[in-house]
């Protein structure tokens, strides 16, 4: 038996209500699972969960999915189970430094795609992405991305600006240390590990 038999990526999407997390994690627990990673958010009123769980035995993925779905009263709940080795989740998709991309300005279709297209072309991996439309005249998109070491950041910044600024959008790409420095309490030295000596 390898890790693939015991470790599963579990996702669930359904209209939000109180108690969904209790219901899903309760089934995982009863099936002998231990959560090793979990992200949950609510997007547009829809509860969205992604988690990784390791099981003592080797449960049948279809039965596990059915057990979770059966415990949810919503008939339209979308539950998916994907077997995967634990190592898969630990391997980074890109090696480099983390930056924060921010785009603000009037909302228009295709803006996230435009950014994502440039990032993909430069090998930049998007790790977290938030799109705040509470003010449509000043929609804010913030992404946490990993920029490969070989990538020319200034060129990337220039390319992003060139693509988005003609549409009235302000774009920035800043190393995450500036955000950590201004929001976390701790010695700056701890952030300096990745800085090369020239």
């Amino acid at each position: 038996m390898d890790d693939t038999d015991k470790t599963f990526l579990i996702t669930a999407m359904l209209p939000d209500r109180v108690g969904i997390l209790r219901d899903i994690t309760g089934v995982i627990f009863l099936q002998g699972g231990n959560l090793t990673d979990l992200r949950q958010t609510i997007i547009g009123g829809v509860f969205s969960l992604s988690c990784v769980a390791e099981f003592k035995g080797a449960p049948d993925p279809a039965k596990l999915r059915a057990a979770i779905a059966a415990d949810l009263p919503e008939k339209d709940a979308q539950v998916c189970i994907m077997p995967c080795a634990a190592a898969t989740f630990d391997a980074p998709s890109a090696v480099g430094e983390r930056y924060v991309a921010a785009v603000s300005g009037p909302d228009r279709p295709g803006r996230v795609h435009a950014i994502a297209e440039i990032f993909a072309a430069h090998g930049v991996n998007v790790e977290d992405w938030r799109h705040d439309l509470s003010d449509r005249d000043h929609a804010l998109t913030i992404g946490i991305v990993t920029v490969p070491d070989a990538c020319d950041v200034r060129r990337l910044q220039h390319e992003l600006s060139g693509k988005l600024e003609p549409f009235g959008m302000a774009v920035s790409l800043r190393h995450e240390n500036i955000f950590r420095a201004t929001n976390e309490v701790g010695p700056i030295d701890a952030l300096m590990k990745a800085v090369p000596r020239e």
């Binding site: 921010a102 603000s104 705040d132 804010l140 913030i142 500036i178 955000f179 201004t182 929001n183």
Partner: peptide, 11 residues
């Protein structure tokens, strides 16, 4: 993990 309000404040 930095939340959106932290990021926005710095921006």
């Amino acid at each position: 993990m930095l939340d959106t309000s932290d990021l926005s404040a710095t921006l």
